[in-house]
């Protein structure tokens, strides 16, 4: 694995930003009546990204005048696009603008390219120019470009929430003010993959088993995406959801990310309970955006009577 940032790292990402800036957002909005409620309206959004390629998102806007804080659910490494993540209280849509985005390859953004899962993380990884993840990152950034066009957003409170892409969004787009991220595959990728047989990292092991001569090359390509080399560009206040101590992406392992970030960082080791970890996230973001006296909006079964 390359432990050095590529010499043309900055140029690579500058070029992507420039290419993206030359593609009009060209948003098309449709009201999704069935998913709208008495506290929020839901819209389906088609927008353009590099390629050009059409991607899709769900935008939920609370009733009222705003401005509203934003939770941007960045593209996942999975096929299904959810309105809000499974298990999140639907009432969250009464407090925040939420925007979930399907990058190229996911359902609703899979024409003409339908990704496989596993499969997308190594698609086109034979060369820097053909690697699909350049487009995935562009799509992630394009989601933020679109959000900035929404008149009722509170630009001082834009949270990027999700996997590694949330950190890339924070590093590469100035709009992100807060980050909630669970790093899963873009931190020291090849070395981390060698420590596990579980997907998604197993995808890289599969690839290298059949292309052992390509290890140096894909390590070099992945170094452009490695969170360690993006860390210093992250100024947003961040919550990093690490693995439990001893896990693959535990607090100790992630030090080369968290200690080099330039915003305040909270690292929370997983308690191996989706309830406890989820509660920590909801309390953290509520505290940061609304203050310690505000009550987090949590699902019914997380409420303490």
């Amino acid at each position: 694995m390359s432990d050095n940032r590529p010499l043309d790292f900055g140029q690579f990402w500058y070029s992507l930003g420039k290419e993206l800036s030359e593609v009009p957002i060209a948003a098309e909005t449709e009201t999704l009546t069935m998913r709208s409620t008495d506290f929020a309206d839901l819209y389906g959004i088609h927008i353009s990204s590099i390629g050009p390629y059409t991607i899709y998102g769900y935008l939920s806007i609370p009733k009222g005048d705003g401005p509203f804080p934003v939770i941007y659910y960045v593209p996942k490494n999975a096929s299904v696009l959810e309105i809000i993540p499974q298990g999140t209280s639907n009432q969250i849509r009464s407090r925040y603008i939420t925007f979930s985005l399907a990058c190229r390859g996911m359902r609703t953004a899979d024409s003409p390219y339908a990704a496989m899962y596993p499969g997308q993380l190594t698609e086109g990884i034979e060369s820097l120019s053909s690697y699909i993840y350049r487009g995935v990152v562009a799509d992630t950034l394009r989601g933020l470009d679109f959000l900035l066009t929404c008149p009722t957003i509170d630009k001082s409170s834009i949270v990027a929430w999700g996997n590694d892409n949330a950190l890339l969004a924070g590093a590469l787009h100035g709009a992100v003010t807060h980050i909630v991220s669970t790093p899963s595959f873009l931190y020291d990728t090849i070395n981390q993959a060698s420590r596990t047989s579980s997907y998604p990292l197993e995808e890289f092991n599969d690839y290298l088993r059949h292309n052992p001569e390509g290890k140096g090359q894909i390590s070099e390509i992945l170094s452009y995406y490695d969170l360690r080399f993006h860390s210093s560009a992250i100024t947003a206040e961040s919550l990093i959801m690490a693995d439990y101590d001893g896990g693959l992406f535990d607090k100790k392992t992630l030090r080369n990310l968290t200690e080099n970030m330039n915003g305040a960082v909270t690292v929370h080791p997983s308690e191996r309970s989706s309830y406890k970890d989820g509660m920590f996230c909801e309390k953290w973001i509520t505290d940061k955006l609304f203050g310690k006296d505000a009550t987090p909006i949590v699902p019914n079964h997380w409420k303490v009577e």
């Binding site: 959810e82 499974q86 999140t88 639907n90 699902p299 019914n300 079964h301």
Partner: peptide
Amino acid sequence: ELTDTYPYQEINDYLRT
């Protein structure tokens, strides 16, 4: 009735409509 989360919310969305 017990939850306020997806995916069961799909049924509530449907019945509200």
